[in-house]
């Protein structure tokens, strides 16, 4: 079996970052309070920035461009995990996804940072330096929700729903690590479930894909600002 290409390794990560960035940005203007609005919007921008850096590396290998990879592919060529596709405009569900995603992402980024390919290891290390703050943000919200009965109930409810999706962010071999990290952090057992894996498309992704690609499609020759 040939070694996986950079596109094989980085495109699922790039697509996750692009789509989770879009989903997080849907809170801009309506987050629970002003400071959180600024912080969560900034995280969304960071994720999309990571996506761009990753697409640029993949584009070089494929002879394409970052914009073409981000916006010109049909929906069923995106490799993003179902977790990031979901649209859940409920703050507890958003924090549950944030915690699941950031925990899974930390595991994935750590393994990429140990890659033999210096380009892959380099981009993973650069992304990780920003993800530190995303994890701090997820951690403090997690503690905040766990500190009250109402918060804990809402979070647990959202985690129960999203846990199969969280598992699906990682390859099979790394899922036990995610379970261990989360069970320890949440001080609760997580159920044995069938993971929601890449290649599956949630119905709401179509709407996002349509909106996300609309400017590109309206100016096929390339928009100039």
């Amino acid at each position: 079996m040939p070694a996986p290409s950079r596109a094989d390794i980085l495109l699922p990560l790039a697509d996750d970052e692009l789509i989770v960035g879009w989903r997080n940005s849907e809170w801009t203007g309506i987050a629970p309070f002003l400071e959180e609005d600024v912080a969560f919007s900034s995280i969304a921008q960071n994720e999309i920035g990571h996506a761009r850096a990753l697409y640029e590396i993949v584009a070089e290998e494929l002879g394409s461009t970052a914009d073409a990879l981000a916006y010109d592919r049909p929906l069923d060529e995106y490799r993003c995990a179902p977790l990031v596709q979901l649209r859940r405009m409920d703050w507890a569900a958003t924090i549950a996804r944030h915690v699941l995603y950031e925990t899974a992402d930390a595991i994935r980024i750590a393994s990429l940072a140990a890659s033999d390919d210096p380009v892959v290891a380099g981009i993973a290390a650069r992304i990780d330096r920003e993800e530190v703050y995303h994890r701090m943000h997820a951690e403090m919200w997690l503690d905040r929700l766990l500190a009250s009965t109402d918060g804990r109930d809402r979070l647990d409810h959202a985690l129960d729903e999203l846990w199969p999706y969280g598992l699906g962010v990682l390859d099979e071999g790394r899922r036990p690590e995610l379970r261990r990290a989360l069970e320890e952090r949440l001080d609760r057992a997580l159920p044995d479930v069938e993971p929601a894996v890449r290649g599956r498309y949630e119905p709401e992704l179509a709407e996002l894909h349509d909106e996300m690609t609309s400017v590109r499609r309206s100016a096929p020759a390339g928009a100039r600002w």
Binding site: F33, L34, E35, E36, V38, A39, S42, Y133, M136, H137, M140, D143, R144
Partner: peptide, 20 residues
């Protein structure tokens, strides 16, 4: 100034609003 529920939130929000 920033409003935040505790010091950890304050630190994150200050970074985002005045440092990024």
């Amino acid at each position: 100034s920033i409003a935040a529920p505790d010091e950890r939130f304050a630190e994150i929000y200050a970074r985002e609003q005045y440092g990024r």
